[in-house]
Structures are given as structure tokens and as C-alpha cells.
């Protein structure tokens, strides 16, 4: 089974990937391409291999057979320098946060910066950390340890850690789970902003409503195998029963985007700033968003402006190439 969006460069490729745990196949002969700048959502029942696939895609667990390619290079054969670059440009949001318990929240957020930007001064590191903390809307003391946080707060800090270097490729394992309403809306807004910036998103979720809002591609996993993959229509054509069983009746993409922007707009009231401009507008890119959702534009502009400046150019460049 193989799937790919024609004409778009793949950022990640699975080639007959299999993985085992003991005598049990957790992934079986999985082949697909993930296009750059797109949001791919993986769904499936518990134990279907979603998280294992995500970790294999992120190079956190090796494939027992087949290979995973990042920009055409096998993850298993990256040089030390290439792997450092891959880690610099990708990030993983773990289902349970996976914050480092023996470090303060600040150090949790600062470590990726210290590793990948070793020349950064303490003031620069602090500036980057503060920016990403503002982005996720966490307002408490950063000197505390992760054990002092609620489950939802840990998830927000985990998301902040993943975003601290503004990755081009973001893996997210159930990013919307265990969040209260406000935090969930914040995360939804951030996902929308990342999508708008042309970041490649690989998301495992059971939230079919969010799949409808954000997914460019849907993958359905069952018993470690790929049961369907592609745009919603392609996936339904491939295996309509499996897709409908998990997604229910999804709205078409355009209407789903409108719903996402409408929600972001409502949430934006407290944050909206006059004159906030979408990056897509700066870049003259249309994108698949409804342009008259003013509230949504404002708050997403707020989020986008909080993301690192230096990579804005690269992000726009990437978007221009794709359009």
C-alpha cells in the first residue's frame, strides 16, 4: 500500500516499515509519503500502532524492517551532524508531556536552545524561552518542577518545549488530550498557526472534529497496518468503512477551516491586537483560510509574531516554493 500527494516534495517517507515488540508485530509493512507543509493526522483504535508509528517516524524507535527517510535520507544512516540537523528542525510532543522531572520548567525549555544554539547568551536563551511560554499562554513561575504542574499544564509546557526552536516538522501524540477548555483552544489556535506558517505536522489523535478542521491527509491504522491514507476523499475511496468508523461524518475541508477560524476568532477577543497581520498576507499567500475571520486572524497573527523572527523568512520561503 502506498500513498502520496502528487507533485509535492515528501518531507518524510515510510518504505515497508515494520516494527516488533517481542513476538508481536506493532507495525506491518507500512509505506507512505508525508508532504512538506501539510498536516497529516493518524487515527486508529487503541493498540493500533499509532504512537509506535509516530515514534518510528521521528526516529525515536528504530524500524525493525524497511526504512524511514527524511528528505530522502534514511534516519537509520544519518551522520552525527545530519542527525543534529534533523533534531534541530523537528520536535516531538509526547502524550504524557515527558518533561524532565529533575529540571525546572525553565531548564526544560532552555535545554534545546542550549544544545542547538550553544553560542546563545543566558539573556538570549531567556528571551526565547519567555517568547514560547507567552505563546502557549503559561503564566506561572518557571522555577518550579514539572511535578508541581497539573496534567494540562505539563502538556502546555511540553508543547512549548517542542516549539522553542520553531521546528519545520512537528510530531504530536494526542496533543489535545487532558487539556481544559481554555488550554485546548490555545493548542487548537497554535496548530492552526503552525499550519498557516507551512509547518509539517504529523499528529496522532482520536479527536475526529480536529481531524476535520486541520487534516490535509488522514491515515487510519489497524493492527499495525495502514488501512487507509490520503485526503479525506482518497482515504474514503481506499477504505470507506475504516475511515467513517473513526471520523464519523467529517465536513469538507473548506467548511472545516472556517469552523477552526471561527473558534480561534472567538478565543481571540482577549488577545486581539489592532493591526495584527497574518504571515500569509505578508507573503502574499492565499492559504486555505477564510480571510474575513477577523478575530481568528488577529490571534493567529499574535501567535505567529511570537514565533522566532529568523525562521519566519525560511518559513515564508518554504510556503512560496510550495505555492
Amino acid at each position: 500500500m502506498w500513498a502520496r500527494a502528487v507533485g509535492e516534495p515528501p518531507i518524510l517517507e515510510f518504505r515497508s516499515v515494520g516494527a516488533r515488540r517481542g513476538d508481536f508485530d506493532i507495525l506491518r509493512d507500512i509505506t507512505f509519503d508525508l508532504s512538506e507543509g501539510r498536516a497529516s493526522f493518524f487515527m486508529g483504535a487503541a493498540g493500533s500502532g499509532k504512537s509506535a508509528l509516530l515514534k518510528t517516524a521521528a526516529g525515536l524507535r528504530p524500524a525493525d524492517s524497511g526504512e524511514v527517510l527524511y528528505r530522502g535520507r534514511s534516519l537509520a544512516h544519518l551522520s552525527r551532524k545530519e542527525e543534529a540537523q534533523f533534531r534541530r528542525k523537528s520536535a516531538f510532543v509526547f502524550q504524557d508531556g515527558a518533561l524532565w522531572a529533575n529540571q525546572s520548567l525553565f531548564d526544560n525549555l532552555a535545554l534545546p536552545v542550549r544544545v542547538h544554539e550553544p553560542g546563545s547568551s543566558p539573556a538570549e536563551v531567556e528571551r526565547i524561552v519567555r517568547r514560547v511560554v507567552d505563546l502557549v499562554g503559561y503564566e506561572e513561575d518557571l522555577k518550579t518542577r514539572p511535578s508541581d504542574l497539573s496534567s494540562g499544564e505539563r502538556r502546555l509546557i511540553a508543547l512549548a518545549r517542542a516549539l522553542v526552536l520553531d521546528p519545520e516538522l512537528l510530531f504530536m501524540d494526542e496533543p489535545f488530550a487532558n487539556l481544559d477548555e481554555a488550554a485546548s483552544e490555545r493548542v487548537v489556535g497554535i496548530v492552526a498557526a503552525l499550519k498557516e506558517r507551512g509547518r509539517s505536522l504529523v499528529v496522532v489523535t482520536t479527536r475526529s472534529d480536529l481531524v476535520g478542521r486541520f487534516a490535509d491527509f488522514i491515515a487510519v491504522l489497524g493492527s499495525g497496518g495502514l488501512m487507509a491514507f490520503g485526503s479525506y476523499d482518497e482515504a474514503v475511496e481506499w477504505n470507506g468503512d475504516a475511515v467513517r468508523a473513526l471520523t464519523g461524518r467529517l465536513k469538507p475541508r473548506a467548511a472545516a477551516s472556517e469552523a477552526a477560524w471561527g473558534m480561534a476568532g472567538a478565543w481571540a477577543d482577549a488577545f486581539a491586537e489592532d493591526g495584527a497581520v497574518l504571515e500569509s498576507e505578508k507573503a502574499g499567500k492565499g492559504a486555505n483560510v477564510k480571510r474575513d475571520a477577523d478575530g481568528g486572524r488577529a490571534v493567529l497573527g499574535d501567535i505567529i509574531n511570537a514565533l522566532p523572527e529568523e525562521d519566519d523568512e525560511a518559513g515564508r520561503g518554504g510556503e512560496e516554493e510550495r505555492t
Binding site: 521521528a58 543534529a84 523537528s90 515527558a98 544544545v115 510530531f171
Partner: peptide, 14 residues
């Protein structure tokens, strides 16, 4: 740390 996926988190940030 292994059980809490902290090791994987270290790998994920390089």
C-alpha cells in the same frame, strides 16, 4: 526516566 519517556524526550531534542 525511561518509563516516563524522558529518555525519548532527550533524543527528540537532539
Amino acid at each position: 526516566m525511561v518509563v516516563a519517556h524522558e529518555m525519548e524526550a532527550y533524543v527528540s531534542v537532539g
